[in-house]
């Protein structure tokens, strides 16, 4: 299904450059289609309006940080009982400092909060979004928590995030020591 869909996208949306990633077991829903970052709005518009695909629901947008690039995944569903299908659509964001892609709120209103959450956690801005601000963290929060290079704040509004007297340092040292032992064992095995 993904192979045909990616061919369909390539035929109808010029420059979308859709590449299907297929897993061995198609029933596991792990297959996905990666498209060009700048063409995400056009691809979503096509998949929604086209009669053969007609995906009528966007039920999740999630972000993934692979350290050298970030990915935004769109879960599209078609609730047509005669042909129920799911599609995972992925775009890659390589610029970590000024990360920005086009918003799909124009097609799916459900994308509003989902895109705000992706912005909150990964710092990816969505162009043409009606209300682009944080949704879960406070407005004066520093950094984007789900990025791999995120460092937790030491203080927030006069409150200490990790007070020394509350941290059980013995437990912490135990975990660190266990990790060191595991690492040494792994090196020895090699």
């Amino acid at each position: 299904m993904h192979k045909e869909l990616s061919d369909l996208i390539n035929r109808n949306v010029t420059g979308a450059n859709a590449v299907a990633y297929l897993t061995a077991d198609a029933k596991k829903f792990d297959s996905s289609i990666t498209v060009e970052t700048s063409h995400i709005y056009k691809v979503v518009e096509f998949l929604k309006t086209n009669k053969t695909t007609s995906f009528n629901s966007l039920h999740c947008i999630s972000g993934v940080d692979y350290t050298d690039y970030m990915e935004v995944c769109y879960m599209l569903t078609n609730y047509d009982p005669s042909a129920v299908r799911n599609l995972t659509l992925k775009v890659r964001v390589t610029d970590r400092v000024n990360a920005a892609i086009d918003s799909v709120v124009g097609q799916f209103v459900s994308a509003d909060f989902l895109e705000r959450e992706v912005y909150d956690m990964f710092g990816i801005k969505f162009n043409n979004h009606p209300d682009m601000r944080r949704i879960l963290c406070p407005d004066d929060w520093e950094g984007f928590p789900l990025r791999k290079d995120y460092v937790a704040q030491k203080d927030y509004n006069g409150m200490t995030v990790y007070p020394d007297n509350k941290m059980n340092m013995e437990d912490r040292e135990f975990i660190v020591r266990q990790n060191m032992i595991k690492k040494a064992q792994a090196e020895k095995a090699q």
Binding site: P145, A152, T160, V161, P163, M167, D171
Partner: peptide, 20 residues
Amino acid sequence: NKGGPYWQYGYHVLKGVDEV
């Protein structure tokens, strides 16, 4: 009481309400 399961890696959780 003390942050519960978020005591070690909870970047967003206050470690006990007695802080405030």
